[in-house]
């Protein structure tokens, strides 16, 4: 099963809508509550990043019997130093994003921690595609 969501960076107050919608899909599918929570947290961090660091994009969630894959693709500025971006506490978030309660530099380490597999493909000036996999 495939679920696709558009993420609109022009409406930051809507950020998190895709994660909220996918969370209710997972509940309807009867996925284990602990796994739902991990997926929701990681996907939400990724969705927020697409809004505050890039210009939105598309999220594709694939559910099969053994795993759930969440692919978040944006055509934003890309990440120049991925190791640094993965470091807890590192953030380039704007003042605006900080006022929303983001910018602690915890999103990337959180996604790593809550997923079973995390893969980031990024190119400066082209964009970032983040893939998270969760075992069922």
């Amino acid at each position: 099963m495939i679920f696709k969501y558009q993420v609109d960076a022009a409406a930051p107050e809507l950020a998190g809508r895709a994660s909220t919608e996918f969370k209710s899909v997972l509940k309807q599918l009867g996925v284990n509550a602990k796994i739902i929570r991990k997926i929701s947290i990681a996907m939400y961090e990724g969705e927020i990043n697409m809004v505050i660091h890039a210009n939105g994009g598309e999220i594709t969630c694939t559910v099969d019997e053994k795993q759930i894959e969440v692919v978040m693709a944006d055509s934003g500025p890309g990440i120049p130093d991925l190791d640094l971006a993965m470091t807890a506490g590192w953030s380039t978030a704007s003042q605006e994003a900080r006022e929303l309660g983001f910018g602690a530099g915890m999103g990337m380490p959180n996604m790593k921690r809550f997923s079973d597999e995390m893969d980031v493909k990024t190119k400066v000036g082209v964009g970032t595609t983040l893939t998270l996999r969760f075992n069922l």
């Binding site: 994660s19 909220t20 929701s40 309660g101």
Partner: peptide, 15 residues
């Protein structure tokens, strides 16, 4: 929390 915006509610929905 002292943060008041829609993301606070979203965040709570996630956890």
């Amino acid at each position: 929390t002292g943060t008041v915006n829609p993301q606070v509610v979203r965040t709570c929905q996630m956890v």
